[in-house]
């Protein structure tokens, strides 16, 4: 008993140190003046804004399509449910470059869905839509799984009571289920957005240009070396850290309401 707390604390601290050392080292090794000038670099700024924006679109589309699926996985019983759950988790398991190739073979202009969309003027290859699509494919499991767990945590009897009090299934979902699962869904959305921001493999295949921040970092590293890649990476980390700290704080507050 006496050793439990110190051992667990030591192991936790060790992991935190291992996790943060490369990131902290990279950030502190970039002088503030270099960070400032990187921030003023239009190409960098554009890539960061594009990354945040496309990841946000991916997350919002994830809300629309992922929440119903999460609810079905949480509430319904049907044959093949485990298989469906496996399908949802698939993007976490397969290499994202492979996912990019798979997406290209469906959403490319010469392929099934891509050719249909190209007729109405929507292209996925080398466009912001394509970036969002690639991000959504690889990051949706984070939202779907978190939302499913959130729905599972809502007592189904609360929904039953709402129905007997006069609520339709839609009213029950929006007035009872969704508000009670909102923290889990918000957490999932933050995770999905974060995963979208960091996506490289699938995006680089489907939409090398316009360039998102991870591709820009890779390109600068390949073309100019570490010194040019480091400030962009540091800047992306600082901005993401600030945004996620605020989002976590906000989602923490929503729990207390």
């Amino acid at each position: 008993m006496k050793t439990f707390t110190p051992v667990f604390s030591a192991l936790a601290v060790l992991l935190l140190v291992l996790l943060t050392t490369p990131i902290v080292n990279m950030v502190i090794s970039s002088p503030p003046a270099l960070l400032r000038s990187t921030l003023l670099d239009q190409e960098v700024l554009h890539a960061i804004i594009l990354t945040l924006k496309t990841a946000l679109w991916a997350t919002l589309s994830g809300f629309l399509l992922g929440i119903p699926l999460a609810y079905i996985l949480a509430r319904w019983s049907f044959p093949g449910k485990s298989f469906l759950q496996g399908l949802v988790d698939l993007p976490i398991m397969i290499p994202h470059t492979a996912m990019g190739v798979a997406l290209l073979m469906v959403y490319g202009k010469k392929f099934l869905i891509g050719s249909l969309f190209s007729k109405i003027g929507i292209s996925f290859v080398g466009t912001e839509v394509g970036i969002s699509l690639a991000m959504a494919y690889v990051s949706l499991p984070f939202l779907v799984n978190a939302a499913r767990d959130g729905f599972l945590a809502v007592n189904p009897r609360l929904e039953a009571v709402a129905r007997t009090l006069g609520a339709s299934p839609w009213q029950t979902f929006f007035k009872v289920t969704l508000p009670l699962a909102r923290r889990a869904i918000l957490t999932g959305a933050i995770m999905m957005w974060a995963r979208g921001i960091s996506e490289f493999g699938a995006v680089v295949i489907l939409a090398y240009h316009p360039m998102v921040a991870p591709i820009l970092i890779w390109e600068r590293f390949e073309s100019y070396g570490l010194a040019y890649a480091r400030p962009v990476a540091s800047l992306l980390i600082i901005i993401c850290l600030l945004i996620f700290a605020v989002l976590r704080w906000l989602s923490g507050r929503s729990r207390e309401v």
């Binding site: 007592n155 009897r157 039953a160 129905r163 007997t164 009090l165 006069g166 609520a167």
Partner: peptide
């Protein structure tokens, strides 16, 4: 449907 029955339910765990 339950919402159109006007039958009230009170559960053991309050809900």
């Amino acid at each position: 449907t339950p919402e159109n029955r006007n039958i009230g339910v009170v559960y053991q765990d309050y809900c």
